[in-house]
């Protein structure tokens, strides 16, 4: 059985330029999200003695995440060097080089404004069943998952293979790696697959700051005193405020409707 842990390498606290909106990430602070750590732990557990491959799409700095996965028990690792912007396409291309997967486990969504679409796109690409929002995943002859529903309810799912499962961050974490495993993982060669997933399928328009068009307002006539009065609206006739205290919600609604009719916002 081939189990893939598809992990997202992400900076949990990226800097965002308040003026331009540009996002700056720090490779040192980057790593897996809690959901991805949970996904790796689930993948290691359901793979048992079988093959569990940790896969991520990212720059060479992302190999630290894969070495941690190897130290924790993954049998192999694969880094996908993607020149494009479609994570799911890149992951699909990379995973295909490993053979047909039985189970792909992901975090439910990444921390960098992830939409949670990657698991669905992977399921579509591999023709696999998709189970999302899982808090438990187990392989006991068949793959079963526990899905969290609203109101504290749970739904137990029998998941056919092949499957793409996305898990929520729970308390489950990969086992603490032994020192020999850490050293072996440091020395391991990480295979790299280079793909180009193409430009992002989601095209956003150019972002510009709000700049309302200037409107010409003629200067009021008269001497300085009258101009100031005109500009401040001191002499403008206005409807004085009226305090109403309706006795019930129905009377309050009637009051509001009357006001809107009186000022032409509703038909009389």
């Amino acid at each position: 059985m081939l189990v893939i842990a598809a992990l997202r390498w992400v900076d949990p606290r990226p800097g965002v330029d308040p003026l331009t909106g540009a996002v700056h990430t720090d490779p040192k602070a980057s790593g897996p999200s809690a959901a991805d750590e949970c996904a790796l732990a689930h993948a290691l557990r359901i793979a048992g003695p079988g093959r569990c491959v940790a896969v991520t799409a990212g720059p060479p700095a992302a190999e630290g995440l894969l070495r941690d996965a190897l130290a924790a028990g993954a049998t192999d690792a694969l880094r996908i060097d993607d020149a494009g912007a479609n994570t799911a396409v890149a992951l699909t291309a990379g995973i295909r080089t490993l053979g047909p997967p039985d189970v792909i486990v992901c975090g439910d969504h990444s921390l960098d404004h992830g939409t949670g679409a990657t698991p669905a796109l992977l399921a579509h690409a591999f023709g696999a069943a998709q189970a999302l929002g899982l808090v438990e995943l187990s392989m006991d002859g068949e793959l079963t998952g526990l899905r969290r529903l609203d109101g504290g309810r749970r739904e137990r799912l029998a998941i056919p293979l092949p499957a793409v499962c996305s898990v929520e961050p729970t308390g489950l974490r990969p086992p603490r790696a032994s020192l020999p495993a850490v050293l072996a993982a440091q020395a391991a060669a990480i295979p790299v697959v280079t793909v180009d997933s193409g430009p992002s399928m989601v095209q956003a328009g150019e972002q510009k700051p709000y700049r309302p068009r200037p409107t010409h307002l003629g200067a009021p006539a008269g001497d300085a005193h009258h101009r100031v009065l005109a500009l401040t609206g001191a002499l403008t006739e206005r409807t004085p405020p009226r305090v109403v205290r309706p006795a019930s919600a129905a009377e309050a609604a009637d009051e509001l409707l009357d006001f809107l009719r009186k000022h032409g916002f509703l038909e009389p």
Binding site: R176, A177, S178, L179, P180, V182
Partner: peptide, 20 residues
Amino acid sequence: TVVTGRSATGVRTDRPDGDI
């Protein structure tokens, strides 16, 4: 990796099989 103390031959760490 946290070194938790010295051992007869080096140091102990908080990892499984963590003696160095």
